[in-house]
Design a protein around this nucleic acid. Structure first.
Lengths: 114, 114
DNA sequence: GCGACAGATGAAGATTTCTTCAAGTCGTCA
DNA sequence: TGACGACTTGAAGAAATCTTCATCTGTCGC
């Protein structure tokens, strides 16, 4: 094993661990988009967006194609969408659980635990 | 929106972005385990493992229960396993694609691209 | 109560990752 | 050809994350 698998996984998740990168991936779920459009929807400076796109390119999560004047980005595999869906599911669950716990605590008249 | 959703997602993925934490989650997929066992399977100092477990606890991905002498950790939801599976799928695909590309390049007699 | 484990926590220096700014590349159109 | 628009790249300071070490808490057996 050249690079331990669990380390590759960790790196992979770290790639997803950035708000701008997540937004890009979510936007690309609906199909390819030129940088210009990404830029219009994400509040960030062009050079910063470019840096984040570079990270996504390096890890092969997206592909970039020059089309004349502009550059179009796309997900390199639709599996990414599955992953984001799975993440959303967990996140939703964690958040509602937290909410439920909070409600329970308040109902019990308790002060914040611990 | 208190915390933008895409930021919560990013934080969530960042939590997964550490080799030790990934290994812990994978070990816990097969069921709850005491720290002692985790420590035996992961090469890391006790205090470091503890730090990483604390991160996982903070994000509610795992739960800890004291059982007399030892502390037992468990996944807080089986969805985590799904997520890891989805990640594994993408990773496998990316890696085989890379491998295929490499083979292709070599077959074409090319020197390493770029 | 004491001593010995099993873990957790706090703090600080070492690393990584982010953001930003200046400069660079590649097309397009006059 | 030259100027401009659309991105990209490199570099450096700022900020977040890691690792490690010393210390602390909770259990058990004596």
């Amino acid at each position: 094993m050249p690079v331990p698998l669990y380390q590759a996984k960790a790196e992979f998740f770290r790639t997803l661990g950035h708000p701008v990168r997540i937004r890009v991936l979510e936007l690309l779920q609906d199909g390819p988009r030129p940088v210009r459009e990404l830029l219009a929807e994400i509040e960030v400076e062009p050079s910063n967006l470019s840096q984040q796109l570079a990270v996504l390119r390096r890890t092969q999560l997206v592909t970039a194609t020059r089309e004349g004047n502009t550059v179009v980005y796309a997900l390199s595999t639709p599996d990414v969408a599955d992953l984001l869906r799975a993440a959303r599911r967990i996140l939703t669950e964690l958040i509602t659980d937290q909410g439920a716990l909070l409600t329970e605590l308040r109902a019990a008249g308790g002060r914040p635990a611990r």
